[in-house]
Design a binder for these strands. Structure first.
Lengths: 196, 196, 196, 196
DNA sequence: GACTAAACGAGACGGTACGTCTTGTCTTTCG
DNA sequence: CGAAAGACAAGACGTACCGTCTCGTTTAGTC
């Protein structure tokens, strides 16, 4: 993403106005013409900035969108202790689904996951700065569950995480059916089953 | 994909030689320069054919690869009756993993899934001609399991399918850890748990 | 132009129907889309023939048009003896202008003269089979005039021919003003002047 | 031809170096492969520039050549007053022939006149920016001649111009015999005859 | 020195037309 | 009558440019 220059050095300061105009233009254009139709030139034109300003701060259009997502969409999901593994899991899944219910956000996520497959460098940034954070949030819940002895045998936390996020992403990427309430129940069934 | 002309009509026949040269070149180039670096021009040059010949038969480079995958990689997975749900599932997952263990194939799948997100038309073809077939194969097993009463309560076949393929795809797309033997055991645990 | 095969040999005869369909299509298309927009593929499609049939008999689209001009437009101009150089000249110019007064024919001539500059081989054919015949017609008149002693001194027949056709072509190619009656008078003035 | 941007505005300046490289490459290539073999891609490759740079400033390959002709060949012909119509005319024709004696220039002129027939838009530019200037130069001489009363009766200046340039162009386009000294004498004879 | 603006070299894009080759059908002539 | 010859319509082939687009860079002038 964009580096912040160390303070106290000469030269004009980075224009926050331009930065926001670029992020806004990028999201709007993605909604209007799709990720494939999004271009750096288009972002520059729409935001009233120069191409060089974009290239100076972001390495690719996907990074602009990732920044926009982090800046614009409030992605943070708190993981309050609901008192038990099943309740925690249910709460986490509910919060996550809510977040992903905005179609614009879904389209953005699909585009970024796609770009991550194609562009190796961006893929690393996407995994580190987005996917890992979501895994860590679930990880917290699983750590608590393990401490309580609630985790079913034969299902290490890593695999639970793979199953949870895997199912969500697969519905989005491969079936175009958005996750819903019913899926929460069924996932909880599968992941807490043996101990119930 | 490519239409087959009805026989007995005038005009030169489609060159099977060119077709295979194109599919081969496409796969080789993807391995060498990556999907992002793959171009129609490159495929034409490598295969010794003309661009027009490619455009005549495939609408995009992703479709060439999808055809290559279907033609070259033997994707069909038989689903023999192993006698029980758990054994069937274990066999299906084992066969599937083996198939996807070739890194070349994995890279292809990642690229195609990515393209499916970005190119709506190709996405539809990819879902219909690739993803649905894999789902159907698993569906057969689940139908047998349901007939035997082996399916755990609260886990409809659709959701089992989402969980199985979701986990596999997520490992490939998001974590870059290829599915392995251990994952089979854990998935089987999660999906057959309650009946065990 | 098209060679005629020696008679009495085996094989299907050249189809006069196709030949005329091609010439007609070529002229129509030139009128509709201009010479630049004229293509062999278009002629084949319009005439309901195959491209190969065209390439078999004519080396270029310009040759098709040249053939069409010779076949369709009655280009022959008789040069009857009007009794004197000035009268002969006046008659010849009048007949020539009449011929070139059809805008379709003019456009064709412009295109062929243009192609003759660009395509060396066609240029030779155009000069031999079209331009030379027109020059020869005027040459007849000048031969008669010389016999009568009507030719002005210092103006060899070759140069008279250059001046006559040059002026006509120049009006067509460079000024887009079609030759008219007034021009006849003025040319006759210039070319018969000294003896008058 | 190329517009000149108003000064004092932001943005990179047009590269004069590229402009000249393009004009030079265009002339060289025309000499080497002929006008038909000349392509924008070839000019770009030879000149070490991008195609877009050519398309930015010239609408067609013919316009590049027209610019090259104007820039490289010193086309201006002064029309000093030689004291009389016949002397003026003789001087003008001599200067003109000298100019057109370089075969490279002749080939260029043939190509441009040809293109002007085929491409309507270029034709207009060619007539306005090239042909009209040559006509105007001769027009000056004829205006002087008229003031002196040297013009033969029955031969308006317009027609004299048509005859002079027509004969020159016809020799170039249709007979491939370059104009020479003898032609000057004969033209002068035809055009000044009655007053002599 | 960051900014907007714009030209630059590079090269892929989708497309068109070229001229050739292949296929199967339909004449024509001759053995 | 049947085989050989060749013209036919259809259409796929490899090739070459077209004109456009976007890339990422560079240069110029402004803030």
């Amino acid at each position: 993403m964009a580096d912040r220059p160390s303070p106290g050095r000469p030269g004009r300061k980075r224009s926050e106005e331009s930065r926001l105009a670029i992020l806004t233009a990028a999201m709007e254009l993605t909604a209007e013409v799709g990720y494939a139709g999004l271009t750096i030139e288009g972002i520059a034109a729409r935001s009233g900035t120069g191409k060089q300003t974009i290239y100076r701060w972001w390495p690719s259009k996907a990074d602009v969108l990732l920044d926009a997502l982090a800046t614009k969409a409030r992605l943070h999901i708190p993981v309050p202790d609901e008192g038990g593994y099943e309740a925690d899991l249910r709460r986490f899944l509910g919060d996550t689904f809510e977040l992903g219910s905005r179609p614009q956000v879904i389209d953005l996520l699909r585009a970024l996951m796609a770009e991550a497959q194609i562009n190796e460098n961006f893929g690393e940034r996407f995994r580190e700065e987005f996917l890992r954070r979501r895994r860590d949030a679930l990880g917290e819940i699983l750590t608590r569950a393990r401490a309580r002895g609630d985790l079913p045998a034969g299902l290490p936390p890593e695999t639970v995480t793979d199953i949870v996020f895997g199912t969500l992403w697969y519905r989005i990427l491969a079936t175009r059916r958005l996750p819903d309430r019913r899926l929460i129940d069924e996932l909880v069934t599968a992941l807490t089953g043996p101990t119930a």
